[in-house]
Design a protein around this nucleic acid. Structure first.
Lengths: 378, 378
DNA sequence: CTGTTAGCGCTTTCAC
DNA sequence: GTGAAAGCGCTAACAG
């Protein structure tokens, strides 16, 4: 009775024996075929095929003290925005040997620490984390991670290593300025759960109003504790928004600020709810009320009327993060610590109070490719 | 000069030495504290803390010939439905030692094979894969995976190991029957990209129409090649639906079938687009036209009018899959090979042609908790 | 309950 | 360009 505790699968030694070479040659042929002569490489490839050899990644990771795992920490799996970032990440990984391991922090700093600790046990090849508000402990872990760390979806003067994102403050400010420009005067800010990026948007909103002399503490206060209201409600466990929440928040805000004439929603899902609420109340958008969202998800353009939003480049952020990571892993220089991918204010009918677009209904402003849908009535 | 190629981090031997015990005792204390006496355990815990010891998972995986990785294969990251399944999976994993590694197959059988092969190199503790239409090769890989395999989001008589989902055929049939019951007669089926589960829904739709004597090959054909139309368009690269696509598909279907009086949409996103298109054309829902979707995402209930849909239990499917996996890993018996989690037809105003709900606008049918939103006009 | 020994399968080091 | 030997850090298998 042997003491071997193998699972019977062929090992690199089996391949080596069959190919009549040393194990290390097989190892090299597998990792970088150019390191091995053509003749041997062919023999090895044949042996691999005949044996159905599958490399054991744990052994590789142990021997080389580094794995092919890229750890990704996102605060939410449900929000479309992070799904897009993830898609960019996966697309950036492509068919490389790298593997993604996603952790869902749920906007919980303790959970983030725990997940980070778990990830570090894998000796990851790289880490991609959302935002900049890690706990001091987490920050230290990232700094000692011994691998490239990319922060995404925000900006900071002091990234752990590299950060790719955009200014939420500027984005919030820009959309608010648009609302002011087209003539709205009592502009509310609608938000449920507030994370640090939402707060950036809010501060941009406040700044734009202040600069225009339209700042009203009452309105700002109302905006401020609507988040608290959201948390008090049935959404206390959800850290994501729903259209139903948008409807309810709008109703509440209207109660507090009866002369409200527009809202800037912290995200598109809330904006959709606001549109539904306006529909239900028979309020015409944009004439009587302006609606703007944030992120520019697919449905914003297709809504009736099309909804204005701030387009953010989530896919690109995820994709570029991986590209940067791979560059660093390949030892290429990468000195740009802070990458600002920007944003675009997409002006559509829902904020076209000035009538720049005419009152034709579904026209789009600022959208590169207007849809080809059948207009008019049947 | 030492030959060690360690990265300097403390190992289990360091902890053992510091605690004055054998390495194996530390190993045991870490994996299952109950295997070690209190006295030693405390010493070990202290040593771990003082050294900042972090176990090396690669070494563990190598020595034990099994990892803590649970491989998950989904066809899409963008579709809300799979985000929900993933959330269920993450919630099921909780704070166990298990790790999720997600692969995005993009509905591509070759890519699925490739990702599966990659996953298998990790000697995963378990696998969760979407659906039942794997390639023969992939199927064989799953059968030889040497770990529990759970298929999700569909049903089959012959699962690799265990399957958790529901009947798409029955779900499609049930919703179509509802549309027939409330009086619609020319019911279209709207779909973009068709996967095997969509086809199940379509077959249920066809069967319901046939049984009611409402089957019209013209209508069915129109439904059938709308998918092709969708693929011809600008969406050829996307395997997900958008509301804009819903609008365009509806316009096309209407052109072909002028007396269409309702559509059953393959998913909610298309249904939302259909609602927008009706809004834009001034068509009243449900009086002139009925709309039903599939999955019952958040926005369906909040829409104006609220949209009927088939509620599917995505979170539960993901969650139960992990629970089953953990049970199997713990060696507990689990003989139920096929778990049907069912579905619910949620009847809302968008299909209330019969006026069962009255014409009050936003009432919900079949929804447990109607929202508390301000109705009427301002 | 605890320890010793011998691997797990691969890659690093260094020599040829 | 190729190989032999020596680990990587941990745990299964026995003992005690």
């Amino acid at each position: 009775m042997s003491k071997r505790r193998t699972d019977g699968k062929p090992t690199i030694a089996d391949v080596a024996q069959r190919a009549g070479v040393g194990a290390i040659t097989v190892s090299r042929a597998l990792r970088d075929p150019s390191l091995v002569s053509d003749a041997l490489r062919e023999k090895i490839d044949a042996a691999v095929r005949e044996l159905g050899y599958v490399p054991n990644l744990a052994a590789r990771a142990l021997a080389s003290t580094r794995s092919d795992v890229v750890g990704v920490l996102v605060p939410s799996l449900t929000q479309h925005i992070f799904a897009d970032v993830l898609r960019g990440i996966y697309d950036g990984i492509g068919k490389t040997r790298l593997h993604i391991q996603v952790g869902n922090t749920r906007y919980d700093l303790n959970e983030e620490e725990r997940l980070l600790a778990e990830l570090l046990r894998h000796k990851p090849a790289g880490l991609i984390v959302s935002g900049i508000d890690q706990s001091p402990t987490a920050r230290r872990m990232l700094e000692n991670a011994n691998c490239p760390v990319i922060q995404v979806m925000d900006l900071s003067d002091d990234p752990v290593n590299k950060i790719i994102g955009f200014s939420h403050h500027n984005a919030g400010k820009a959309m608010t300025q648009h609302l002011i420009e087209v003539g709205y005067r009592r502009i509310g800010f609608l938000s449920g759960w507030m994370n640090s990026r939402s707060k950036g948007r809010l501060s941009g909103y406040v700044e734009a109003l202040e600069e225009a002399g339209l700042y009203d503490p009452q309105l700002a206060n109302a905006a401020g504790d609507l988040g608290a209201l959201a948390l008090r409600g049935s959404w206390d466990k959800h850290q994501y928004s729903t259209p139903a929440m948008g409807r309810e928040l709008l109703a509440e805000l209207w109660r507090r600020v009866p002369d409200l004439d527009a809202v800037f929603c912290n995200n598109d899902v809330l904006a959709l709810g606001v549109l539904f609420e306006c529909n239900a109340r028979g309020i015409s958008v944009p004439q009587d009320f302006g609606i703007a969202g944030f992120n520019d998800e697919d449905f914003m353009e297709a809504a009736s009327p099309p909804l204005s939003s701030v387009r953010t480049h989530r896919w690109k952020v995820g994709h570029d993060a991986v590209i940067a990571l791979r560059r660093q892993l390949d030892g290429e220089p990468d000195d740009e610590k802070v990458i600002d991918v920007g944003f675009d204010v997409i002006k559509r009918a829902s904020t076209d109070r000035g009538g720049v677009l005419g009152r034709a209904g579904d026209a789009n402003v600022g959208t590169p490719k207007p849809m080809a849908v059948g207009g008019g009535t049947v």
